[in-house]
Design a binder for these strands. Structure first.
Lengths: 275, 275
DNA sequence: CGAGGTGTTGAGAACCATCAATTGCCGTGG
DNA sequence: CCACGGCAATTGATGGTTCTCAACACCTCG
């Protein structure tokens, strides 16, 4: 009998159970969690709050005493530029955490705003202290995720620096699709894109007008198909080629994680579902 | 008698001693380290390696088993785009760490290349395991620094997305200056900029021609003065205004750090030198 | 003295922004 | 049922910022 359970074990997983643990299910992608670690994660998701579209769940320039797991809906991290023109730094999808990278920071650098209505699970930052004390492997996993975010951000930075509008748009679509697949492997090539073209423009550093032109171009080239608010990627590979996309989600490393000690639980890589 | 020593205590600090601990001195900016923690840090800097200009100290797409502290010289993190046009993601100055954000990542996302000759201190990634086990406050500090890097990267992302060439250049100059001041508070307004205009272009996502034009513009407006390879910021405040610069280095938070335990060492904020 | 790298300057073109007008969609109310 | 308002998407015309290409000046080093 094993002392670990795999959260994403295929089998009798009810829909409700899955929706109760979208964060845990994302973590489970990177390995098996011990029972104790699962308790920590569960604690992070124990309180829910329903949030409206446009609600600021993490205000900039304010001390941040709560982290969030986004459970339903999309959020956006936005930098407020005094130029009026504001820039979205990243999109936060269900199952992703807000504030991990701001953990050591006294004041939050940027706003995090809900792009749609949704449900978030706030949990006090102090809990992280306990994690660092008692669940070193989990804290290492958080470090890993933070690092992954950083690499991802680097990719976007490169794209914003030297990428054309076409490349940016392709990257945007492909990246969203791949990230949605992480939590929800069975969506196929079609997904809901609950953003206006203005919003996309703020993510990509383009005007809504040019966003529209790029989308039209892709549609004309039969690369995508738009059935608002859904998008279908007709030729994902071509889009990846245009974007120069490299999937970074295989990058999580656990080899250096501290061992769990006498219970000897291995946080080994989970085999990827063939795709 | 205190059990802690402040590494940057003003007083009899020899030049040699300071050059031996540029990383420690950066850490010390954020608080006082215990003797044990100092030992960890010292261990990170115990082996030195002299590196040539252009040398790749951390190759992309390869497992990363060493971190580096850059002790002398400048390094650059570069994303290799297959478009030919390559983009520098960030500049790494003496006293800064390479690879912290890649800790949890199986393969390094990007190359890190020396922009000048210099000295780096490699230390095995495995040491971090020990840190996470035995020096929770230190590992929290690393998390904090990683977070700070992330926020900084967000600022640059916003700038690349919606900033003009003028704003980018101003930000570039001001940011470098402020970061050099962290380790070396007495350089005044003049600093050595050991980069070609092409290199600056790769950082800012501009061509060398336009970099030149911006620099000329700033010179004509008496905002800067160039005495290759030195730059003097004649009106730093105007530059900050142009760049919309906000200094993020005050942002490190230690309130949530785990306590050190019975020895009760406080990792309190260090008062900033008045500037 | 020549070669190569870097900086400087000019002219034209490309990409994307801006401005402006129109269409289509949806919910509301008459 | 239709009129209306408002928001988002779409399309066209024009302009600005930045790129590209190209030539030349400067410096260092052999």
């Amino acid at each position: 009998m094993r002392t670990t359970t795999h959260i994403l074990d295929t089998g009798p997983v009810s829909g409700a159970a899955r929706s109760n643990s979208c964060f845990a299910s994302r973590l489970a992608r990177y390995g098996t969690l011990s029972v104790e670690e699962q308790e920590f994660v569960a604690r992070m998701e124990e309180s829910e709050r329903r949030v409206k579209k446009g609600e600021v769940i993490l205000p900039a320039n304010q001390p941040l005493d709560e982290l969030f797991v986004v459970k339903e809906g999309w959020a956006v991290e936005r930098s407020r530029a005094r130029n009026g023109r504001q820039q979205s730094l990243r999109i936060i999808l269900p199952g992703e955490v807000v504030g991990l990278s701001n953990l050591g920071v006294r004041l939050a650098g940027n706003d995090v705003v809900m792009a749609t209505e949704g449900v978030v699970c706030p949990f006090p930052k102090d809990h992280m202290t306990a994690v660092y004390h008692k669940a070193p492997r989990l804290s290492a996993l958080f470090t890993a995720i933070t690092g992954l975010d950083s690499v991802t951000m680097g990719d976007r930075l490169a794209l914003m620096g030297s990428g054309t509008a076409r490349e940016r748009m392709a990257h945007f679509l492909v990246d969203l699709h791949e990230r949605l697949l992480v939590v929800n492997p069975d969506i196929g090539r079609r997904f809901r894109l609950p953003l206006r073209q203005v919003d996309i423009g703020e993510v990509l550093g383009l005007t809504k007008v040019y966003v529209n032109r790029m989308l039209k171009a892709f549609t004309d080239e039969h690369l995508i198909e738009i059935q608002r608010p859904y998008v279908r990627l007709l030729q994902p590979d071509v889009l990846k080629e245009i974007a120069g996309y490299t999937n970074r989600h295989d990058l999580i490393d656990h080899s250096w994680f501290p061992n769990a000690g006498q219970n000897g639980i291995s946080l080994g890589a989970r085999e990827r579902p063939t795709g």
